[in-house]
Design a protein around this nucleic acid. Structure first.
Length: 448
RNA sequence: GACCCUAUGGUCUAGCGGUUAGGACACCACCCUUUCACGGUGGGAGCCCGGGUUCGAUUCCCGGUAGGGUCGCCA
């Protein structure tokens, strides 16, 4: 039997990081087993459906590299799709639901009630076999003991989540339902529904939830809850995917940075952890830095370029070699692409507006003669390269009887406008003699 | 309130009856150093509590506590 899994998000306008992780685990399981990964849009709540909301999900999944074998190809509910079990939007499957509700009614397992349709739920406890948690016996709650039956079609004619979810899983021949643990209790209803249709339920695997750093539930409003945030912050998708795969699952062997290919090979359901995990931004940050370090120059350059554009910095007019050399000086320094503008924007600006605090500290009268002396020495350098610059600066410092830092700080602020940045000697080499001298002159006028 | 899941340093985790309880992130100190980052060395920090079972429990069982989830004509 070929394994078929699905990710079935509701288009709410954003992609929850927990949802992204659920999608990832489904995708990993499909790729690990050679099965089929299906994307189904649960847009039964017409009030809040929009193509934009669906696009957020599609683009998020694509950003992570989670390609689906069956499902929609665009955000349009009636648009093109791939796969033989469509439509993949629930809003397009109403006839199927109506037919199935009729089936239940004919079997005497559903009945009309106050304009709605209710399902005749079994009164006995339901055993839920779960690949992650084990066998779970779900007893009825107080409320359910009073009335175990539940609505499957609202009085306005709309079928509810439990019903359509089960019907679609059934019609789409889903073999493994991998979803958040928040659905574990509800699974009793789903199993009862499958039985009512005379079909064996799929295998279930309820994965732990992702909580906030403080252990509270991560809801829409919490910062960091939306995948879009990480995309905009400039995280590398491979880093986010790596980090997410480590929440609730472990490759063992004290491994942290694991290439996706290996994750696919190692991933399996029985090893999924049973307890919730808290989202640790620090660790994501670190992993992102690891991926940046291992990135090749073209890929790094591409993402750095995007970060600059996002910050409104243009590299237009600079030749490719200059831009590449500039980025190379920042690559080992940043852990996040959001830091790129601060580390490289001075390469692409004509005039430097120094950071006020840094200027106040470095642009002081006593530094003026020192920088003047250094400027004169720089002007004499024939080969304006990092080695020569370092030798020259250190020679001047020796003459002045001061430590290197005394000159490095004002020169750095003069050249970059900031007190932190890439290696000073290398960035000066890239800027070139003309620009460096010009910036030193500009800074000297502010040291009186 | 009822029902369900869970419980190893601050966080992510390894461990599956006998270990000096391992790794990573974060944190602190020092080294390296032109800033930052990297790298290196060292350090603090953990088996939720109480009963059992056992020669022996972090590990198995029960209870408690705590956290999370569900009980909707939301998904």
């Amino acid at each position: 039997m070929s394994i078929r899994v699905r990710f079935a998000p509701s288009p709410t306008g954003y992609l929850h990081i927990g949802g992204a992780r659920t999608a990832l685990f489904n995708w990993l399981y499909a790729r690990h087993t050679g099965g089929t990964f299906i994307l189904r849009i649960e847009d039964t709540d017409e009030a809040r459906n929009s193509q934009e909301a669906v696009d957020v999900i599609l683009s998020g999944l694509r950003w992570m590299g989670l390609d689906w074998d069956e499902g929609p190809q665009t955000g349009a509910a009636n648009g093109p799709s791939k796969g033989e079990r469509g439509p993949y939007f629930q809003s397009q499957r109403k006839a199927i639901y109506q037919k199935r509700v009729q089936e239940l009614k004919e079997k005497g397992l559903a009945y009309d009630h106050e304009g709605a349709v209710k399902f005749r739920m079994q009164r006995e406890p339901v055993v839920i076999p779960d690949l992650v948690v084990g066998n779970v016996t779900r007893e009825l709650t107080d409320r359910e003991k009073m009335d175990p039956d539940f609505v499957i079609v609202r009085s306005d004619g709309q079928p509810v989540f439990h019903l359509v979810n089960v019907i679609d899983d059934l019609e789409m021949a889903i073999t493994h339902v991998i979803r958040g643990e928040d659905h574990l209790s509800n699974t009793a209803k789903h199993i009862a529904l499958f039985k009512a249709f005379g079909v064996a339920p799929p295998n279930y695997a309820h994965i732990p939830l992702i909580l906030n750093k403080d252990g509270s539930k991560m809801s829409k409003r919490d910062t960091g809850a939306s995948l879009t945030g990480y995309i905009e912050e400039g995280y590398a998708p491979e880093a986010v995917v790596n980090y997410l795969s480590l929440l609730g699952w472990s490759p063992k062997g004290n491994r942290e940075v694991v290439p996706l290919k290996e994750v696919i090979e190692l991933f399996d359901l029985p090893q999924v952890l049973r307890h919730n995990a808290r989202f640790d931004l620090d660790k994501l940050h670190w992993i992102n830095g690891e991926y940046i370090k291992g990135m090749d120059a073209p890929r790094f350059g591409q993402l750095a370029q995007e970060a600059l554009v996002a910050a409104g910095v243009s590299t237009a007019g600079c030749d490719a070699a200059y831009v590449a050399a500039a980025f190379a000086t920042a690559k080992e320094k940043v852990k996040q692409f959001r830091e790129i503008p601060a580390f490289t924007d001075f390469y692409f600006k004509d005039a430097i507006v120094p950071d006020a605090e840094a200027a106040a500290k470095s642009f002081v009268p006593e530094n003026k003669p020192r920088v003047e002396k250094l400027r004169a020495a720089f002007a004499q350098i024939a080969a304006f390269d990092a080695v020569s610059l370092e030798q020259t600066l250190k020679a001047i410092c020796a003459e002045l009887g001061v430590k290197a830092g005394v000159l490095v700080a004002p020169v750095r602020v003069a050249c970059t406008g900031r007190s932190v940045g890439p290696s000073l000697y290398h960035l000066m080499e890239i800027l070139g003699k003309e620009r460096v001298l010009k910036r030193l002159d500009a800074a000297l006028t502010k040291m009186d």
